[in-house]
Design a protein around this nucleic acid. Structure first.
Lengths: 167, 167
DNA sequence: AAAGATTGATCAATCAATCTTC
DNA sequence: GAAGATTGATTGATCAATCTTT
């Protein structure tokens, strides 16, 4: 697998070129600004970014519900974080917890009617924020190039992970 | 300034197209993964992402030092967050606080020798992580396109902010 | 024992005061 | 009073147990 292992192993740091440096700084700025504006926008609905993500995933799930583990996978949250956030959403009346049919260990997080109203009310301005802070500023060519590079990147990654399993 | 203000103001939500949606999901995934791997990598040096940023900015500043306010501006941190993080770095012996010449209100954060050793030790693998989780996966054309779009975006933004000042 | 989920303790981030110096 | 910086209180995130069911 490691086809250069017989070459002298000199740990040379490949520092960023001026252009790469510039891109990295811009990336940091744009990302920070994007996140900040998303948070600002969601304040009007009394939601955090994490809360919005949870509600969004539930609203797209069949039966407006998901098991905690599946929801954790989709949102990329840790289990404990999800537990705390869902508990919070429950106090707001936006989500309810229900026992899981056929598996007494499981817990189903279900979007309530108030939860659906909330996410549907918050969504338009959230999308507008994402557009205004990112998407609308990327030209069609940039979008296509990014999608291609990102997908190739994730493809490489999943192959690496898969490859690591049978060493 | 608002050249469409005489048009009927129908608040139509411009939902994301399939391609835009795909890009946005990829962006979220890539960004989350990038951040996660940066954190993982810095653990070896006992630093958080925030700590690294602070040390990095200090190491590039003249005299290895910056006033708290300036450091906050550069890192995009809030003042109180910076106070807590610098206090922590001080307990680690990586930064020291010194009174500010000529302005008794100011506090100078100064990189110590241990601080410089730490950042110089952490930097190579940090850069490698940034490359491996992002930069190296963007083709030259994608990089140029991104830089152009990002810069145009920030330019637009600063004009808007500037314009808002003399309403 | 492994999977699903929660809890307690700890650390980090945020917001609204507060304090000092300009 | 405004700028520079810190503090206290609160909320959020994380990690290592813990508990139950499979």
């Amino acid at each position: 697998m490691n086809n250069v292992r017989w070459l002298p192993s000199i740990p040379v740091t490949r520092w960023l070129s001026d252009e790469e440096q510039r891109l990295w700084r811009l990336w940091i700025t744009v990302t920070a600004d994007l996140q900040h504006r998303i948070q600002q926008d969601l304040e009007a609905s009394g939601l955090t970014e994490a809360d919005y993500e949870i509600l969004a995933h539930l609203s797209e799930a069949p039966g407006d519900s998901l098991r905690m583990t599946d929801l954790a996978r989709q949102t990329l949250f840790q289990k404990s974080r999800l537990t705390y956030r869902v508990a919070h959403l429950e106090t707001l009346g936006l989500v309810s917890r229900q026992p899981c049919e056929g598996d007494a260990r499981g817990v189903l997080a279900v979007l309530t009617k108030a939860g659906r109203r909330t996410i549907e009310k918050a969504a338009p301005s959230h999308v507008e924020t994402v557009r205004d802070a990112l998407i609308d500023h990327l030209r069609p060519g940039t979008r296509r190039a990014l999608i291609a590079d990102f997908e190739a990147m994730l493809e490489t990654r999943s192959q690496k992970v898969h490859g690591a399993h049978h060493h």
